[in-house]
Nucleic acid binder design. Structure first.
Lengths: 217, 217
DNA sequence: CTGTTCAAATGAACATCATTTAATAAAACA
DNA sequence: TGTTTTATTAAATGATGTTCATTTGAACAG
């Protein structure tokens, strides 16, 4: 039972975040409850509300930390690659690897719904932009393009990888699932970049078999 | 107050599903509750459990219906296109349109987590495969490729579109968001298909500026 | 018309949840 | 030592999903 002054406010905060993360990692988001977190750190529910405004805030804090860890993982992955294209593959692989290793926490980022609070969303968005930026840098290095196009390409590519993760990565870690995710990722990135490359000079030099028709503007 | 024998079991089931869909569409998944559905159809909670095993089952039934509607929308979209590539754009556009028009029900499909019941998941998977198939047909028509590659391409492309939807479509309908989603979709599909087309004959005829390096097998 | 049957429908009960708040106890300070 | 402050708790509130004993009313038997 947390004795008076045994832990500072920020210590309790940290303990709570770690306990909550452990619960989520082990049993999933639905298993998270204020009482469970409180008892895990040796306090009662009320104390949690002394530190966090509500459970939503706790979840958003965890999401922030998860995004930070993800960012660190991507940075780490970039140290193993040289050429921009290699780096893009590395980013995709690192993202999928993280999602596969921490499926519950990763899903939580996208499944939480903030009822109010635009402020926290801004911090959130900032962390997301940081992730985007890593891809943007590689795309810029790959080919000189108008800023607008790089912006779009970045979002399209990240979205594609995110989609692969969300369609293939289940609730419990499964190495076969992850392999499949990586395969899809390499396929999508590979062909997308090839397409980006060919349209650099001319958008329709190579008409494939079948009738390739331009999308109506 | 539902009088004795006023509605058959399947009628109540249908009423409940429609009421629940209306609640979700209007207030989101979190606003759904057994009591709310029951009172909406003029019955009490207990009666709901006479028809559905639990709320999870009701949600899965709704998801099934949503997937059916989505499928119908995609079929509809295919009637407006001629060439395979046009059709692929149309599929992507129809998917994003549906997600934008019914954000809550669309999200529910991916956010629900089945604790048990592999049986319902099979029906579920079957409906998903039907969606995949629509894309698969177009890809096959676009270019003759090994079956395995078409299989992968189908999943990669759908995943990409799904990712775009999940990253851009928020909780409340917003036409600007939807426009942005469509833009990303056209971009991703366009370059991906171009890439797929160029690699049909040779995988590296057009080396872009910057160093294009093959992904290590 | 009366009594019995039986499934449909109910509403209360249970356990759990997030959140609030009045009470308390310990530390800090006078 | 007495007062103030505040960290901490326990209990209360109202909502949730789910269960179940009870009731109700329609259909049928005599």
């Amino acid at each position: 039972m947390g004795r008076r002054g045994e832990h500072s406010k920020s210590e309790i905060e940290c303990m709570a975040l770690e306990a909550a993360e452990a619960i989520i990692e082990a049993e999933g988001y639905d298993a998270l409850s204020a009482r469970k977190v409180a008892s895990a750190i040796g306090y009662t529910v009320g104390s949690l509300y002394f530190v966090f405004r509500n459970l939503d805030e706790l979840v958003q804090r965890i999401n922030g930390r998860t995004l930070d860890q993800l960012y660190a993982g991507l940075i780490e992955a970039l140290s193993d690659c040289r050429h921009p294209q290699q780096c893009i593959y590395a980013l995709g692989g690192a993202y999928l690897g993280f999602a596969a290793r921490h499926p519950h926490r990763w899903r939580m980022i996208f499944e939480q719904q903030p009822r109010d609070d635009k402020l926290t969303i801004e911090v959130y968005q900032e962390k997301m932009d940081r992730l985007y930026e890593l891809m943007e840098i590689q795309l810029k290095a790959l080919a000189a393009r108008p800023e607008e196009e790089v912006f779009i390409a970045t979002r399209a590519l990240w979205s594609g990888i995110q989609g692969i993760a969300s369609m293939t990565i289940g609730r419990i870690p499964d190495s076969e699932e992850e392999q499949w995710a990586h395969k899809l990722s390499r396929h999508l990135i590979g062909h997308y970049l090839t397409g980006l490359g060919t349209t650099q000079f001319s958008s329709r030099v190579n008409q494939p078999v079948g009738q390739l028709v331009d999308y109506p503007k």
